[in-house]
Amino acid sequence: MSASEVPVSAARDRAERVLAPFGRRLLTVTAVDELGAYRVLRAADPDGPMPAAGQFAMLAAAERWGGGEDERPYLSRAFSFARWLADRRSRRSPIGGEAHFLLEDVGPGTHRLCELRTGDGLWVLGPLGAGFTAPEHGRRALLVGGGVGIAPLAIWQDVLGAQTTVLLGFRDGPHAEGAALLSDARVATDDGSAGRRGLVTDLLGEELDRDSHATVYACGPPAMLEAVRALCAERAVPAQLALESGMACGFGACFGCVVPKRDGGYLRVCVDGPVVDATQLDRVEAHLGSPT
């Protein structure tokens, strides 16, 4: 088959999905940076391919993964790539770099990952899933994030360029410090302790009032994603949503991470997403929370 005969959908799929090496890799933690209520976990990944923005990895600590609260964690945990710093010596090569992941200590798995220190071992499987696709010609990119869900928007901004409009929502001031992961973000907080008091979707509504010729890229808690989806549907603005779901494997094996599709049946967040076109869903369901 010649290149011109490749179906458009297949070509798009290839563009946004970088294949993972088969099997998990043992990486070394290079740093754990504090970022307000969050941590940025950084690990050297000399054999890993540069991920597409929006892709994720399954993470587990190499030591003491288990035996925490309720004899957990057991399964690996899914995290979006928040950044990828290509190795200087291999800048022309897509292989090798430092992977960054954004963590919040909310359960036994994230707690253990937050305990990691420089030099510790980290199991990584990835990059996995389908990432973001570029805006249609002429549309500007509007990045909308909430809480720890800002992570994939940071690496997407690295690709799109710093002039991208970024709107972020957080619970409070310490969480809002996470906005430093991106450039020139406008912030809303629930309690008004940083940025505007209110919801990030308030900011999004105003931004679309000003100029709706945009493609929206959103990641955050289910209620936020549903509000973004509804707003964009109402204004006929294309939106790509990076979903989260409880997930055992990350590569389509367990069928555990499904969400209902608009046209019936389910899609697997791990292989059909995590980034999906908003029109694929009737609504973003409220119970996507992963076993964290």
């Binding site: 004899e71 057991y74 779901s245 409880g246 069928f255 209902p260 369901e285 076993p291």
Partner: peptide, 10 residues
């Protein structure tokens, strides 16, 4: 229908 998974002790 989801949810389909729950992490149990070990």
């Amino acid at each position: 229908p989801p949810p389909r998974l729950w992490e149990a002790p070990a």
